[in-house]
């Protein structure tokens, strides 16, 4: 029981750090492509870690499957939307930032 709760706490803390890093990236990165990169990391890994942490606590297997499904749907739609935003930005003529 203790091991289960401790694992959940650790995973949630890791997830929080990913979300924080994504947020800082979103606010601080120089152009839209870098910001998308930061944001999708937070979405994919942070949410994944939250889902795993909650699956450990789930009472039944269908609760766990529902959480996995949530993660999967967010992964797919998040990745596609990031691609679409980046595509639109490229079409509008935004050049990716370069460190000289």
């Amino acid at each position: 029981m203790f091991l289960r709760d401790a694992t959940t706490c650790l995973l949630l803390l890791a997830a929080a750090s990913f979300f924080l890093a994504g947020l800082v990236g979103l606010l601080r990165f120089p152009d839209v492509f870098c910001r998308l990169h930061a944001l999708t990391k937070a979405d994919n890994l942070g949410l994944g870690l939250v889902c795993i942490a909650l699956i450990i606590q789930a009472d039944s297997w269908h609760g766990a499957v529902r959480l996995l499904l949530t993660w999967f749907l967010v992964l797919v739609s998040g990745a596609t939307i990031a691609h679409l935003i980046a595509r639109k930005a490229l079409q509008q003529g935004q050049t990716p930032w370069r460190n000289r």
């Binding site: 749907l73 797919v76 739609s77 990745a79 596609t80 691609h83 679409l84 595509r87």
Partner: peptide
């Protein structure tokens, strides 16, 4: 974008 078509087919 083909990715959007794929997402549509899935969602």
């Amino acid at each position: 974008s083909p990715a959007q078509r794929g997402l549509l087919r899935l969602l």
